[in-house]
Design a protein around this nucleic acid. Structure first.
Lengths: 213, 213
DNA sequence: TCAAAAGTGTTGCTTGTACACCCATGT
DNA sequence: ACATGGGTGTACAAGCAACACTTTTGA
């Protein structure tokens, strides 16, 4: 049976830039290189793959995340020199950057948010560069079909904030009017009556995510 | 490490109806029930998950299929009573119905094409009903975005045949003109110069699949 | 009064559907 | 001639992008 692992691609928005959470490896193989945080599937602890992903998330990053999305599985004999055959189930998480307290654990020196474009340039451990690219593509497709990253926003938010968040993820500008029309048509968001956010300028209506039908 | 398997959801078009290839189990657990054909991942034989899926396909169905699509992984302790924890990687294949010679093997009495709607009604072994539904949804989404089931057609085909194939898969009628316009716009198909198919009525231009850019 | 962000309306393009119509062929 | 399926054209609606415009606030 294969050496079976869970790898987690966690994205966040930090100071307007899209970041991935990576761990710097302290031991061979690939010592000194960055890798996706992950862990071994524990058949004695995990009741499902999603369970396993949440446990790894908790152990490695100290955060409990209710919704993780499975992106797929990758397997082969040469992926990880520690085992003759390694299978990885890859999950994606979206987190507000503030919520992770990088704590060093075994086999890991540093846990850090790294800018996505930078991260992909560097040599990454194992085949994790490919995994990250796949996760990123998937996530952008989600946003394009208005499966929105509400995990990155507080319970209530302005449409401007939501738009800025999507733009950062896509790496492209969106048209304000079109964006709002699409939101209205699909009804993925609803105004909170009476609630306004007053900033430096004209106050904005606050919205909340409306659960899908 | 988990007991790791590959399950394969194979669809085909038989006499105008959408069918799944299922195996009737001869042994416990779930003796007498239908299940997706599958097999155990062999780390000594398989160079990748896709490799494994192709091997299982060859062994169980006697067919070599170059392109299988991974649909995802499912895992848990109660999925299969034979092992304390079972992980299944699910693949999808599309085959012309004629290409499978149902040959009985160990643990299997019958391999048969079953009408999809019927198959889902029956009690299916393990959690395979859910796996089939997921595979079907995925495949229909593919066709809707014109990722077409060319595996079900000969090298050259008429647009009428292609449309009928898609309609059977979707379980819905399509508009001829719209369908052709979409095909032309995306350029997923090209006419074979001079080649025509003469049937009982007006001969039709033959087309071939054009590889994606 | 001006900058900045909120919010709305107008136009036009693109995509897809519905439907009508001609074309070629065997019976 | 006509039924049958192949093949094409037009009209209409939906969805979306581009862009211009008005509104409300603090400085």
């Amino acid at each position: 049976m294969p050496f079976t692992r869970i790898e987690i691609a966690t994205f966040s928005l930090i100071e307007g830039g899209l970041h991935v959470l990576l761990a710097k490896r302290s031991e061979a193989p690939h010592a000194g290189e960055w890798a996706l945080p992950g862990g071994v599937l524990r058949v004695d602890l995990d009741r499902s793959l999603e369970d396993a992903a949440m446990r790894v998330m908790r152990e490695r990053l100290g955060v409990a995340v209710p919704f993780l999305r499975q992106l797929g599985a990758e397997g082969g004999p040469t992926r990880d020199p520690r085992a003759p055959w390694t299978l990885s189930i890859v999950y994606r998480a979206l987190l507000p950057g503030s919520s992770v307290s990088p704590s060093a654990g075994k086999r890991i020196t540093t846990l850090a948010w790294r800018n996505v474009t930078d991260a992909i340039e560097d040599p990454l451990a194992f085949d994790h560069a490919r995994l990250i690219e796949r996760a990123l593509r998937q996530t952008r497709e989600d946003v394009e079909r208005l499966d929105l990253p509400f995990e990155w926003l507080p319970g209530t938010f302005t449409l401007g904030e939501l738009q800025a968040t999507c733009e950062a993820l896509l790496g492209a500008r969106l048209d304000k009017s079109s964006f709002r029309r699409r939101l209205a048509d699909r009804g993925c968001v609803e105004p909170v009556p009476g609630a306004m956010r007053g900033g430096a300028f004209r106050p904005a209506q606050l919205y909340r995510c409306r659960p899908a039908v």
